[in-house]
């Protein structure tokens, strides 16, 4: 992520730093054993050590530890499995529930993320007109769902999509349905509700990234497109989108990352049901880890599988995002 977004700023960064380095007096003030430059360098290190240590202990170490655990089996006393990758074989060949939750998660990813990003892009484009009135109002309204916690909005959707609830009342009232759908108890309907919820919660969030990107666009390219006689849709497709590519790549990676880790909606909106049909990988991981038959070795294999999927998809997206020129 950082590579893709950092590169355009590199020259600016270098330019800013150059005078700073010149400004530091190289020899004038030597203090004690260390030169001033070295002393400041050391100060810099002490400033960043608490943060770096915390990330090491709270992210990197647990990640390696999870990998080590994933090679172990046993309920109370963990021992290395034979063969070592036993948990992974079990996970991908024998565990039908895991395969189901993996399919669910990827279904959410494949359907929801593209729709959301396209919607967000369109909304940002429509909103980024100078002579549009009430821009701030529209922006606030569309961005507002981000202020609500995932559990909270899951509960609101759960209430609206209850069998006797609002959505059925409206659909039956408009004669779009003959009889109420039991949204949260039909696998596909429940999956659709989760996808709708995700769209509602995150479209505005991504729109903000595109709005920020649109404000940095090169105005001259639009003038050129106008002179060449390009219509608004052509301009959008051939001028706006290519310039927004770094932002699109960033939002795609973030959304993919987030969707693969989906937990709250599965837990609070559908409870993963009916019978694991809407459950996500993280929710299944939670159950294997902390429900009655908790098995940390096997659960760690699930968690490491999620990590690898996140990493592989991010790498693929970076490749695709960088190449398309």
């Amino acid at each position: 992520m950082s590579q893709a977004t950092k590169s355009p700023q590199e020259p600016a960064k270098a330019a800013k730093r150059a005078p700073a380095k010149k400004g530091k007096p190289p020899k004038r003030a030597k203090q004690g054993l260390l030169g001033l430059e070295q002393k400041r360098n050391l100060t810099g290190w002490t400033f960043l050590i608490p943060a770096a240590l915390l990330i090491t202990v709270m992210s990197f170490w647990p990640m390696f530890k999870a990998f080590q655990l994933s090679l172990q089996i046993g309920k109370n006393k963990l021992e290395y499995a034979d063969p070592l990758w036993y948990n992974y074989v079990r996970l991908f060949t024998k565990d039908k529930t895991f395969i189901l939750t993996m399919k669910n998660t990827f279904l959410y990813l494949i359907i929801q993320v593209p729709i959301m990003l396209v919607l967000a892009l369109i909304l940002a484009y429509l909103l980024n007109k100078k002579d549009l009135r009430c821009r701030a109002l529209f922006r606030t309204a569309i961005f507002l769902p981000c202020a609500i916690s995932l559990v909270s909005y899951s509960m609101v959707f759960r209430t609206m999509f209850a069998k006797e609830g609002l959505v059925n009342d409206v659909l039956v009232g408009l004669n779009l349905l003959n009889e109420p759908i039991n949204w949260l108890n039909e696998p596909n309907a429940a999956r659709a509700v989760i996808i709708l919820g995700l769209l509602w919660r995150w479209t505005g969030y991504n729109m903000i990234f595109y709005l920020a990107g649109l404000q940095n666009l090169d105005y001259a390219t639009f003038e050129a497109a106008k002179i060449d006689g390009a219509g608004p849709i052509q301009t959008f497709l051939h001028v706006t989108i290519p310039q927004l590519r770094p932002m699109i790549l960033l939002t795609a990676i973030m959304s993919t990352n987030g969707t693969l880790q989906l937990f709250d909606e599965s837990y609070a909106l559908t409870g993963g049901g009916p019978s694991h049909q809407t459950q996500t990988m993280s929710h299944y991981l939670f159950e294997v880890s902390f429900k009655n038959n908790s098995n940390f070795g096997y659960a760690s294999a699930i968690s490491f599988a999620i990590l690898v999927m996140v990493a592989v998809l991010a790498l693929i997206q970076m490749r695709v995002g960088d190449k398309r020129d």
Partner: peptide, 19 residues
């Protein structure tokens, strides 16, 4: 440190819990 952004929370949860 930026690499840690790509580590899903799920992948660190069990060792953190044990810790």
């Amino acid at each position: 440190l930026l690499l840690a952004m790509m580590i899903p929370f799920a992948a660190t949860m069990i060792p953190l819990f044990q810790l």
